[in-house]
Design a protein around this nucleic acid. Sequence first.
DNA 1: AAGTGGTCTAGACCACTAC
DNA 2: TAGTGGTCTAGACCACTTA
Lengths: 240, 240
Amino acid sequence: MADLAYHRVYSELTAQIKHGQYSDYRLPDERTLSEQFGVSRSTIKRALGILVNRGIIFQKQGSGTFVNPLYFKSRPLFNYTGDNIGITDSLVKDGQKQSIKVLHFHVQKAKDEVAESLFLQPNEFVYRIERLRLVDDQPFMIEIGYLPIRLVPELNESVIQSSLYNYLQEEQHLMVTKSFLNISAEPSTEEDQKLLQLKPTEPVGLMEGIFFTDSGTPIEFSRMRIHYRYMQYNSFVSLS
Amino acid sequence: MADLAYHRVYSELTAQIKHGQYSDYRLPDERTLSEQFGVSRSTIKRALGILVNRGIIFQKQGSGTFVNPLYFKSRPLFNYTGDNIGITDSLVKDGQKQSIKVLHFHVQKAKDEVAESLFLQPNEFVYRIERLRLVDDQPFMIEIGYLPIRLVPELNESVIQSSLYNYLQEEQHLMVTKSFLNISAEPSTEEDQKLLQLKPTEPVGLMEGIFFTDSGTPIEFSRMRIHYRYMQYNSFVSLS
DNA sequence: AAGTGGTCTAGACCACTAC
DNA sequence: TAGTGGTCTAGACCACTTA
């Protein structure tokens, strides 16, 4: 992934923006970038397109390409900057300590919704992984994940005490790079209140969705119940 | 917009998928589509890319292009299928009656956050539009929007009783096609409870963000407080 | 008029999947 | 081995903004 031309351009531009290289909020024009990076304008457009899709820059026809000044002001829960799309890589932590407490771990036959979401054969088995995630010892998320055992035959309890997706990448050469999420909210249950240290009037955010590997295989169905103060999601949408 | 080649391909494919044309979940390969539509493969890829970004289809290298069976099962609050990205065009309603009640409407000097979000000059003026939105007489959203008067000089109270973005499109030839949203949740205030008919333990979803015209000009900063049962947001993310 | 992003093409070659 | 999606190029021409 990292050796692709468009990805190299994307990474370098992102780093430059983060380091404040474009303090006037203006990037060089596409033809200049094409020369600077030694790639075609199409490849530059592709790299810029990723930045646009994440809301980091925006482009105005006839005018130029500009950094979105709002992007770095918001404090979302997730910020996809690593290789993987999972929590560990995405969590905005700024030096805070991330930790995981395993609540339950076992194998079961996939129920309907899970089987459907993961495109499983009938009667296929999945791991059910229930974990509590904390930042600086403050619990902020209850996470229930389902993974087909067929895809990850050798999972065990010690693996899931830390980042599952890092394990998949390093030990199984699986990168998890796509997700389809549904986001909502509801009043907290008594269990939410206990685990996430919430008052009865305080709600949880819900994120539920499917995660895919780089090659398009659905690998996890996940339900997350999130302390409302940690629930921040950024979304850039463009109808074109 | 509708006369662009990639957009035509996108529209026709979307319609075909909705009408169940690909009941085996498999689309023709890109080279075949290229011939069928009489456009280059690059243009086909662009159209397919939009469908991928919205989570409607997914592609597997070496294997093919497939319809996402989950897409049509979820019931999000928004579903961007119209020309504009606004509520009116996007709200999934299925024959339900949509209505708007104007709570407040006036002109004021833009405060810091608004001015920053809309890239305004110092001391520029904005409309402040506070509306309650209902579906089938059930209130589901309090919406506070700010628009620069410079961009829409002739707004008045009768216009905002119905869709603002439809007015902008028809009377001002402005299409609103991009948005940068931040999504979160919090306990409801007393005013929320009164306007949205919520119990004290029931929360609101928050959506806050900037809306851009097709040419990239920020045209509205909006804060939405949403009845939690109506708060459903779909997001497809791909790290590439 | 000059500069910038947007659209589109035709084709080469690579990487992965299925048979 | 054939078929499919992924990457990348070099260039033409259009649309919009700014001066």
